[in-house]
């Protein structure tokens, strides 16, 4: 018993820690992670399914800004990340694959306005 404990102590002295030293290294995020959205306006057909399935009503269909209205005349999803629960239903229901979830998880911000993702930046 005593010797077993000693062996464990020495083993743990040279073992790698369970954690990683975060800013320098990070646990890699796997594919298929549900992070920030990526919206491709050229694929969008303005069907509005994403705004209908969103459980938190985080997606509104809005018109494009004045200067782009000629090129993009329909209504496009504006995503409020503050309301989003990152369930990826919008990604799954989109018939054209215009909304994709990326691996970006660094979304904290001090400016409440910046959590709203306009269709065209």
């Amino acid at each position: 018993m005593k010797m077993g404990v000693l062996a464990e102590v020495f083993g743990n002295m040279f073992a790698k820690p369970m954690t990683v030293r975060f800013p320098k290294e990070a646990i890699p995020i796997p594919d298929g992670y549900r992070g920030e959205h990526e919206f491709n306006i050229d694929l969008c057909i303005s069907c509005g399914l994403c705004s209908k399935i969103c459980p938190n009503r985080a997606i509104d269909m809005v018109e494009a800004p004045e200067e782009y209205r000629e090129k993009y005349p329909k209504r496009y999803p504006r995503i409020d990340l503050g309301k989003c629960c990152f369930c990826a239903l919008c990604q799954d229901i989109c018939p054209k694959g215009a909304i994709k979830m990326t691996k970006n998880v660094f979304l904290s911000t001090f400016d409440p306005k910046s959590v709203i993702k306009e269709p065209i930046k």
């Binding site: 992670y33 629960c85 990152f86």
Partner: peptide, 22 residues
């Protein structure tokens, strides 16, 4: 610490660590 290894599996399979989003 051990639980975190399982959360890593959830992250890989479901796309989220704690909330699998249905």
């Amino acid at each position: 610490g051990l639980r975190d290894y399982i959360l890593d599996i959830f992250e890989m399979v479901t796309g989220g660590r704690v909330y699998p989003a249905g």
